[in-house]
Design a protein around this nucleic acid. Sequence first.
DNA 1: TAGGATCCACTGGTGGATCCGT
DNA 2: ACGGATCCACCAGTGGATCCTA
Lengths: 230, 230
Amino acid sequence: MLARNEADLLARARALEGEPIDRLAARLGVASPGAGARTKGKLGALLERALGATGGARRTWDFPELRIELKTVPLDSRGAPRESTFVCTVSLDDADRAEWATSWARAKLGRVLWIPVCGAPGGARTIGHPLLWSPTPAQDQGLGLDFEEIMGQVGIGDVEGTTARAGQWLQLRPKAAHGRVRTVTHGREGTLVETVPRGFYLRARFTAAILRDPAAVPVLAPAGASLGGP
Amino acid sequence: MLARNEADLLARARALEGEPIDRLAARLGVASPGAGARTKGKLGALLERALGATGGARRTWDFPELRIELKTVPLDSRGAPRESTFVCTVSLDDADRAEWATSWARAKLGRVLWIPVCGAPGGARTIGHPLLWSPTPAQDQGLGLDFEEIMGQVGIGDVEGTTARAGQWLQLRPKAAHGRVRTVTHGREGTLVETVPRGFYLRARFTAAILRDPAAVPVLAPAGASLGGP
DNA sequence: TAGGATCCACTGGTGGATCCGT
DNA sequence: ACGGATCCACCAGTGGATCCTA
């Protein structure tokens, strides 16, 4: 059941290509992820099961021995990601000391098994062509710049001033199960402030680019069209 | 339902005196705490409900506005506590910086509503005479000495060398739902060691003494009889 | 007898993504 | 179209005491 190495894992992922989500769910004996607000996250859980990801331990990878993260990426009818991709939650209070090189975000993105899923939620969805990806040096550097920009602002205590507009590829967004969840961190004067928890996300257009070309270095204009790789 | 002040809370607790546990459970529409390993903790939960304790928020008191902690203390046929009383879990890694004055243990013990319960688990148990207690200066000082002794040893990295034999009134004991639960802290050489989580407990003979005389300063010989207060 | 081990309920936080108003 | 808000599953940790041997 468990993948012993990368090649094995990728092979097993690719063996799922073309399979309808509903059929996969039936094979595993679980309810199929339906439509509506009540099924957020079900799709990811299904694919974790299908590939034997270790659902238990947190602050680790989906496949700890392989240091590989599994990311399910829903595609629209044109084959582009419907949404941004969650990376990890951010420890706001350590922001001033945080470095990209040793960050949890970088560890998570170091090796990713992307599994596209085609079709609208609630409709007939099928598994696309899986891809095992690591950032190229150029991609790693770009992600690092976004990281430093964002954590720099948080680090000086300006959490409330952050917006999802910062970062070319990586962005910071609220991450809370309920709107009223609050966490505490240090504000601009060093005083404690309550704020909403945040997480890092990959912009959908970045994910779109690397699914087309794993080595792409997309330039994402603030409000313009995406300029793909080579 | 909620007690507005100490007098109100104590009055409501004393209104329960003499009531059989089974009847109290029936009144609240919950299952009565039976016998056996499967009902640990049920008794405490029952009395929390009966008095409207805020079961939700942790790292706080049972009655947060009043800063009062509720402690259910089962008595044997002679009216003495059957067991030691759990106070709080210990943050092993902060032990070297910990001070009694600002400790969570001291905050918990600052004001305690003791509710004795008479009778053997599984048998006919009834609620005894509740007592609202704060440590006298002498008691506070004695508890502080135990705290410093224990945390001192932990603070120099000798967690594994600790034993429940240390401390006259307050002792350190393992606290883990399963024997295999481990936590990580710094050992003697500053290296990380895995160990079992610990908690502070009040010795049964200390609790026995203050239930008899709230201002008692019992001297508990290592293996001798307890010498009560005045 | 009491030190060390263990059991249950509950929930806050994390990880999985998707919703939805502007 | 996307920034901000939200939903569910799940598990580890906490808080409630009691069990169980040597």
